[in-house]
Design a protein around this nucleic acid. Structure first.
Lengths: 346, 346
DNA sequence: CGCTGGCACTCGGCCCCTGGGAGTGCTAAG
DNA sequence: CTTAGCACTCCCAGGGGCCGAGTGCCAGCG
C-alpha cells in the first residue's frame, strides 16, 4: 500500500510538510529550495512535487498555487518520516510547575491542570479523561441521609475519585442503619475493581446471610442501585480552547463556530479518547480518520497514562491537522509520563 | 437625572428598541411608521428621533443611517418602559421537562440542566451558581485513607453537594481511627452552617476534651485543614454558548474570539453572579455596566433562586445587549422559581 | 537519462470605481 | 405642530483591471 520514496523525495516531502506547518501557506518550489538547502533547483522540486501529488501526498488548493500536504500525506509523514521531539528544559520545568502543587489537589484538579498546561504549551486544546469507571478500584462507600427518603450515596475509589448520587431509599429510616449498611458493604467490597463489584453483590444477595438479615439485604440493594447509571460526559477534562482561535484555519467565523459546536459534544470526544485509552501508547488521528466527529480539519495526538504499569486513562491535544506533530507527540508523551508520576505520588 | 418623555416619545422609543432587537439593523423612520401604526408621518418620527438622540437614548452608527438604542437607552427601556413577559405554556412545559427527571440527579446535575435549558430556550448562554460554600449546612464528613499518609476528606452538605479533597494526615494510621474521628466531628457539627463550622472547631480545640484526647485533637485539626482553601471557579455552571454565535453581533471572527476568551474567565462571571445573589431579586446589567468583564456588547439578566425563602444562589442569561429584555426577564424569573421548587422537592 | 533554466499561462487577491438604495436634515407649506 | 418634498450623505455590492506567485512544459546541458 505505502509506496517507497527515494531519499530525495522524502526530504523534499518532509520539507514541504514542515514549511507548511510553519507558515500555513501553500509551499512553492522556489521558496522551498531557498529556505531548505536541498541542493537541487526549483524545477526539480517541481517535478518531485508533481510525483508526490500523483501519490496523493500533496495537493494544491487551486491551479497555480503552491502545494500543501493532504491528510494521507500527513499520515505518511507521521508514520515514516518524523521522530518525536524531546521536550526542552524550559518546558519541562513549566509543566512540572503547573502540575506541581498537590496542595489539597485531588485527581480532578490534577487532570484539569494537565489539560490547561497542554493547552498553553501546545497552543492547542489539551484534553484528558479520568480513569474509567470500571477500571477503578473500590475503596469506600458511604450513605448519607439528606431529607425524607433521599439518601446520598458517596463512592470513593482507590485513586481518590469521588462519585456521588442521590437515591431514594424509603425502606431505611435511621442514619445509624445506613452507617451499618455502609460498613458492611465496605468490608465486602474493598479492593475490588468496580467492574466486579456488581457480580459480587449479586452473589452475596443469594447467600444465606442476605436472606435472613433485612439490613444486609437493603445494603446490597442500595449498593446495586448506587452503581447503576452510566456516566455521561463525566471524566472528560478539556483545556482552554481559545489558543486554537489564533490558528489561521479558524480565522473565519464559520470555522470557529463549527469548532465550538464540535467541542460542545463532549460525548464524542470522550469516546474518541476512551478508545485511545484501550490501546496503550501514543496515537495520532489525522483529520477525517476520526470519523464524523465534526472536528473537520483537526487532528488528535493522544497517549495513555497510568501508574505502576497499569493504564488508567488517556490525554492528548486537539488541534488543526496542520500541527507540528513531532513536537506534539513529544509533548504529549512527556506530559503523560509526568502525569503518571504525579499520580504515583498522590 | 432621567428626563421625562411624552407618551408619544415613549411609544416611538419603545418601537425603535423592539424593532432593533428584532432585526439588528438600524431603524429608519419610514420603516417604523409602516410596521408600527404610530399614526404620525416619518418626518415627525425623524424629529422625535433626533430629540431622543440628543438625550443619548439613540445613536446612528454613521450619518444617514437609521438609529439604534444606546446602552443608556436600553437602561431607560428596561427601567421604565418594558414589562416582564409571561412565559408561554409550551416553554413552561419544556422547562419542566428539562429540569424534570430527578432520577439519580443531584444538585449539580440540576443546575447544569437549568443552564442548558436556559441556553436553548433563550438562544443565549444560561449560567447559574450553586449555593455558596458558606451558605451551606454541614451534614456529614468522612475520612478515607487512600495510600500512605494521604487521606481523602469527603464533605456533604445538607442539600447534597459533595466536596472533597485529599489531605496529608501522617499522624493517623488506622482507618478505624479515621472513622471514629469522622463520627466525632459529625456529632459536633451536624446542622451547622459551614460559615460557622470553623469557629466551632476552634472553640472545641480549646476545650478539655481536645487537650487530653489525641484522637479528638487530630480530628479537629484534620477538619480544619479540610475546610481551608477557597475553591476558585467551583460552583459556576454554564450552558452551551454556541447559540450566541448565531447572533449577528458575533458573526465576525474577532468578536467571536473575544466572546470565548471572556467566557474562559470563569472567575469574573462567578463574581458577577455572586454579587447578584447578594441582592435578592432580578437584575439587568447592560453593556459596560459590568465593568471590565471583557463581555463587550453583552448584557446579563439574572435573578436569585432559593428554597423556603432563603436565597441560595443565582442564575441568568448572558447575551448581546440587543436582546429581548421582556422575554428574558420573564424567562429567567420563571426558571428561577422553578429551580427553587425543584430544590424543595430534592 | 536526469537535472536545470526559461517561458508562457493560470489564477486568486487587491484596489479602485461606480451605481443603487436607504435614510437623514432642512425648509416651506398646511 | 405636523407633513411633504428635496438635496445630500454614506454604505455596500458588483465589476474590471492589475500584480504576483506559482505551475507545467520544453529544450538544452552534463
Amino acid at each position: 500500500m505505502e509506496p517507497t520514496l527515494s531519499a530525495r523525495d522524502r526530504s523534499i516531502f518532509a520539507a514541504v510538510v514542515e514549511e507548511f506547518v510553519q507558515t500555513a501557506e501553500p509551499v512553492g518550489s522556489r521558496q522551498l529550495t531557498k529556505r531548505y538547502g536541498l541542493g537541487v533547483s526549483p524545477a526539480t522540486v517541481r517535478n518531485v512535487m508533481a510525483d508526490l501529488e500523483d501519490l496523493g501526498f500533496l495537493a494544491q488548493p487551486h491551479t497555480s498555487a503552491g502545494r500543501q500536504p493532504t491528510e494521507r500525506g500527513y499520515r505518511y509523514y507521521v508514520d515514516h518520516l518524523m521522530q518525536a521531539e524531546p521536550v526542552g528544559p524550559t518546558e519541562r520545568q513549566q509543566l512540572r510547575q503547573r502540575l506541581g502543587p498537590p496542595e489539597g489537589a485531588g485527581i480532578e484538579e490534577l487532570l484539569a491542570a494537565t489539560c490547561q498546561a497542554l493547552s498553553v504549551l501546545a497552543h492547542q486544546v489539551g484534553i484528558a479523561v479520568a480513569p474509567r469507571f470500571e477500571a477503578r478500584v473500590f475503596r469506600h462507600i458511604d450513605f448519607v441521609r439528606l431529607r425524607g427518603s433521599l439518601v446520598l450515596v458517596v463512592l470513593v475509589s482507590q485513586s481518590g475519585v469521588v462519585h456521588h448520587r442521590p437515591v431514594e431509599a424509603p425502606e431505611v429510616e435511621d442514619q445509624r442503619d445506613l452507617d451499618q449498611m455502609a460498613n458492611y458493604l465496605n468490608g465486602l467490597l474493598v479492593g475490588l475493581p468496580l467492574s466486579r463489584v456488581r457480580e459480587r453483590i449479586l452473589a452475596e444477595m443469594a447467600s444465606e446471610r442476605a436472606l435472613y438479615d433485612r439490613l444486609v439485604q437493603s445494603a446490597l440493594e442500595l449498593g446495586q442501585r448506587a452503581l447503576g447509571g452510566a456516566r455521561g460526559e463525566e471524566g472528560l477534562y478539556c483545556g482552554d480552547p481559545t489558543p486554537l482561535l489564533d490558528q489561521p484555519e479558524f480565522s473565519t467565523a464559520a470555522r470557529m463556530k463549527e469548532l465550538f459546536e464540535a467541542f460542545e459534544k463532549k460525548g464524542l470526544l470522550l469516546r474518541l479518547l476512551d478508545q485511545a485509552a484501550a490501546a496503550h501508547g501514543t496515537r495520532v488521528i489525522i483529520g477525517e480518520e476520526q470519523g464524523g466527529l465534526g472536528l473537520r480539519g483537526c487532528s488528535v495526538v493522544s497517549t495513555t497514562y497510568g501508574c505502576q504499569g497499569r493504564v488508567l486513562g488517556s490525554l492528548g491535544v486537539i488541534g488543526p491537522t496542520r500541527m507540528p506533530y513531532p513536537r506534539m507527540v513529544g509533548l504529549v508523551e512527556y506530559t503523560g509520563r509526568l502525569l503518571g508520576e504525579m499520580m504515583d505520588h498522590l
